[in-house]
């Protein structure tokens, strides 16, 4: 499938939003409406363009998946971030715990990603 066709849903949707934002101008709306309307249309079109440019991501059904079945590190990172955010209200003690847990999670993620890369290299060179 060509890159142009791949980006079609997002790009067409962005063009439609742009048309609606232009229609809004006829009614001389307030500044917030203009900023939100055009901001949305532009961000959708930019996203459509990046989908157009991106080459990675498309995989056939038979391709090998390297992601591990379990990712405890992801859970630890997400819970850590959430605790740190809750700590903004509960107190710095929870922020500290949350950040510590999040760092441990990110460390685990780095380890997982390295293992994935090694496995990918091993399969390629086999």
């Amino acid at each position: 499938m060509s890159a142009l066709r791949r980006s079609l849903p997002v790009a067409a949707w962005g063009a439609f939003l742009l048309a609606l934002a232009v229609v809004a101008l006829i009614f001389r709306p307030d500044s917030q409406t203009v900023v939100l309307g055009f901001g949305l249309a532009v961000s959708v079109i930019v996203a459509g363009g990046s989908v157009l440019r991106a080459r990675r991501g498309r995989r056939a059904a038979g391709d090998v998946e390297y992601t591990p079945d379990l990712s405890v590190a992801t859970v630890v990172a997400a819970v850590g971030v959430s605790l740190a955010i809750a700590g903004a209200e509960a107190g710095t003690w929870l922020v500290a715990i949350g950040l510590g847990v999040a760092v441990a999670g990110v460390g685990g993620l780095v380890r997982e990603l390295r293992a994935e890369r090694r496995e990918r290299t091993r399969v390629r060179t086999r």
């Binding site: 991501g57 059904a61 038979g62 992601t67 992801t74 959430s82 993620l109």
Partner: peptide, 27 residues
């Protein structure tokens, strides 16, 4: 017809943020 979701770790992380957000809200 995909073997897996795009960004499975991200999806898992999103699930846990959703759960934790709910618990924070209800707390």
């Amino acid at each position: 017809g995909a073997r897996e979701i795009a960004g499975p770790r991200w999806a898992l992380g999103g699930l846990w943020l959703d759960v934790m957000g709910g618990l924070i809200m209800l707390s």
